[in-house]
Design a protein around this nucleic acid. Sequence first.
DNA 1: CCGACGTATTCCTTGACAGGAATACATCAT
DNA 2: ATGATGTATTCCTGTCAAGGAATACGTCGG
Lengths: 118, 118
Amino acid sequence: MDATTFAALGEPTRLRIVELLREQPRSVGDIARVLTIRQPQVSKHLRVLREAGVVTVEPVARRRVHHLRAEPFEQIGSWVGSFERLWDTRLDRLDAFLRSADGGPAATDRRDGRPDHT
Amino acid sequence: MDATTFAALGEPTRLRIVELLREQPRSVGDIARVLTIRQPQVSKHLRVLREAGVVTVEPVARRRVHHLRAEPFEQIGSWVGSFERLWDTRLDRLDAFLRSADGGPAATDRRDGRPDHT
DNA sequence: CCGACGTATTCCTTGACAGGAATACATCAT
DNA sequence: ATGATGTATTCCTGTCAAGGAATACGTCGG
């Protein structure tokens, strides 16, 4: 997974823009008006989003209509999917194990720590 | 959606740490050794991740074992889900519409652009 | 109590980035 | 061509974050 995508979304204003564009494509001026951000800042943020592959431009008359690209969101989706085991019950059991090992009498006597490891 | 989570994941080193922790919980020193990052930097990055709610600590003996929290990943997952329409065929049709309105003979004859509304 | 180990924090320097303001650039209407 | 509209870029400034190095802190073993 490329950190750039997350970096682009990690800026509050940019995230707002993305969430606005989720509804429908918008021109630069539109975005600026709706979110009450000055136009130059919008242009700059859109540049970052574009270079991160999050949005693309569609020139319409003299406006530049921006819309979201699907790819980065698909990527994030499948990346997050690779963490599914986190909310499987498996983890809760591991977690419970660690906690008991912590407070209580050491479950193993190799105080080195890691429960059995991998 | 809170930009903080994305910001935490938007730093390459931090993303590497997260992807390492996806396999199994690790102590600070472990992480430093595996990723060949100096221990203080690891501590700092873990601090950011912790304050963003991405990881939690589990003190084991004199080590501090860090593991991922499920919540932020669930959040991201459902947030990304709200973009599903992006890769639905619906969008492709909207996209096609915009393109035709642009290059071809105007689908509507107010060449000003925006298809209706606003 | 003391030394050793694992980790956190501090100070410093440097580079990146966001917002403001002004301005350049492109395109359309007349 | 000219003015007007929509957008991009530039310059400036302040802030913040990351890496390096040194050091403080906490906990365990003897």
